[in-house]
C-alpha cells in the first residue's frame, strides 16, 4: 500500500483551513453579537477598535491573554484545566464531517471540501456533541464552588434532555433521506427541494434544541448571571474563560452549519446546476452560499437572544420533555407513515 502523500497534505490543509475559519467566525461572532445587541437596542455597539470596531475581537482576545490566571486553591487543578480544554476540543471536532462544499478539481486532482465523509456523519456529530457536556461538568465541579456546580448540573441535564428531542427530530429526517451521511443529504437537496419544506416541524424542533444545546438564550440557564453569579465558568479567568466563551460561539457556528446542511440545502443553491458555470466556480459559489446561510443562522441566534427572555428552569424542562419530545415523536410517526405510503404506492 503506497501512501498518498498529496491526499494527506490536502486533508491537513483542509483541516487547518476549517479550524482557522471556525475560529475566525467564532471570533467575529463575538463582535457580531455585540453589534447586533447594540443595533437592536438603538445603540451602535463596538466602534472604537478599528473600522466599525472590527478589531474588537483581537482586543478582547489580547485582554483575555494578559489577564491574571487564577486557579482556586481548593479546586481540583487537573480537572480545572481539563474542563475548558475539553469544551474547546469537542467544539472544534464537530466540523470534520460537515461538507463545506462540493469537489474542487485542481491540476487533475479532485479535492473534496469535506474533511471526512463518513457514512455515519450525523451519529458522529451526536457522539461529539454528547461529549460537550463533560467540559462544562468537569469545569463546574472542579471549581469547588456551589454556583458552578449548580450551573454545570443544570447544563448537563438540559443538554441531555434536549439531545433526545434533537435526535428524534433527526430520525424523521433520516427516514426521509435514507442516509446518515451529511454529504449525501446535501446532494439530495441539490436535486430537489430543501428538506425544511418536507420537515418544517422537524426543523423547528431541531432549531429549538440546538438553542438549548448551545446554551443560548432563551435556554442559557447554565450562565444565568442573576441566579448563579455567572454560571459554570464563575471561577475561571484569563484564557480558560476565553476557551469556554469561545467554545460556545464555535458550537453556534457548527450548529448553524449543521442546520444549513440538513434542512437548507447546505452548499447547494437554487439553479445551481442550470447556470452553466464551470464546476470549480460552482463549488466556490456553493461554499459562499453555505456561508451566507450560516451567517443568517448566526444572526438568528443573536436575534433571538436579544428578543426572548430566559426560561425558568421548570419551564425549560417542561418544554423539553412534555412538548418537544412528544412533538418529535409525532413528527417521526407521521414521517414514517408517509414514507411507508410512498414506498408502497
Amino acid at each position: 500500500m503506497t501512501i498518498d502523500w498529496f491526499f494527506i497534505l490536502e486533508k491537513i490543509l483542509l483541516i487547518s483551513g476549517v479550524l482557522a475559519i471556525s475560529l475566525i467566525v467564532a471570533m467575529y461572532s463575538t463582535w457580531g453579537e455585540r453589534k447586533v445587541a447594540g443595533v437592536m437596542q438603538d445603540r451602535i455597539g463596538p466602534n472604537r477598535a478599528g473600522f466599525m470596531g472590527l478589531l474588537q475581537p483581537l482586543a478582547d482576545g489580547g485582554k483575555l491573554f494578559f489577564k491574571e490566571e487564577i486557579i482556586p486553591g481548593s479546586s481540583n487543578r487537573f480537572l480545572f484545566i481539563l474542563g475548558p480544554s475539553l469544551a474547546m476540543m469537542v467544539a472544534c471536532m464537530t466540523s470534520a464531517v460537515i461538507p463545506w462544499g462540493d469537489t474542487l478539481t485542481i491540476a487533475g486532482r479532485t479535492i473534496s471540501l469535506q474533511v471526512a465523509d463518513i457514512n455515519i456523519g450525523i451519529l458522529y456529530i451526536f457522539g461529539v456533541v454528547s461529549l460537550g457536556v463533560y467540559g462544562i461538568m468537569l469545569g463546574g465541579w472542579a471549581s469547588n464552588n456551589k454556583y458552578s456546580l449548580l450551573a454545570s448540573v443544570r447544563a448537563a441535564s438540559q443538554i441531555i434532555s434536549y439531545e433526545l428531542a434533537m435526535g428524534l427530530s433527526l430520525i424523521a429526517l433520516l427516514m426521509m433521506t435514507g442516509t446518515l451521511s451529511i454529504k449525501e443529504i446535501v446532494e439530495q437537496q441539490r436535486h430537489s427541494l430543501w428538506n425544511v419544506l418536507y420537515q418544517p416541524l422537524g426543523f423547528l424542533i431541531f432549531l429549538v434544541c440546538s438553542f438549548a444545546e448551545c446554551n443560548r438564550t432563551p435556554f442559557d440557564l447554565p450562565e444565568a448571571e442573576n441566579e448563579l453569579n455567572g454560571g459554570y465558568h464563575l471561577e475561571y479567568s484569563s484564557m480558560k474563560l476565553g476557551f469556554y466563551l469561545f467554545a460556545e460561539y464555535i458550537n453556534m457556528f457548527i450548529s448553524s452549519a449543521l442546520m444549513s446542511s440538513l434542512y437548507f440545502g447546505g452548499y447547494s443553491f437554487p439553479y445551481m446546476d442550470s447556470l452553466g458555470l464551470s464546476p470549480n466556480l460552482t463549488t466556490i459559489l456553493g461554499t459562499v452560499a453555505l456561508f451566507v446561510k450560516i451567517i443568517f443562522f448566526l444572526f438568528f441566534f443573536m436575534w433571538v437572544r436579544w428578543t426572548i427572555p430566559r426560561f425558568r428552569y421548570d419551564q425549560l424542562m417542561r418544554l423539553g420533555w412534555n412538548i418537544m419530545i412528544p412533538l418529535a415523536l409525532a413528527n417521526m410517526l407521521i414521517t414514517g407513515a408517509i414514507v411507508l405510503y410512498r414506498s408502497t404506492h
Binding site: F126, G127, S130, V133, Y134, M137, W141, L149, V153
Partner: peptide, 22 residues
C-alpha cells in the same frame, strides 16, 4: 463504535458523574 460513545460516554457516564458530583 459511535453508538457506544453516544450511549455510554455521552449519556450513562454523564449521569454517573452527575450523581458522584452531587
Amino acid at each position: 463504535a459511535v453508538v457506544h460513545i453516544i450511549v455510554y460516554a455521552g449519556a450513562i457516564m454523564v449521569l454517573f458523574l452527575f450523581v458522584i458530583m452531587l
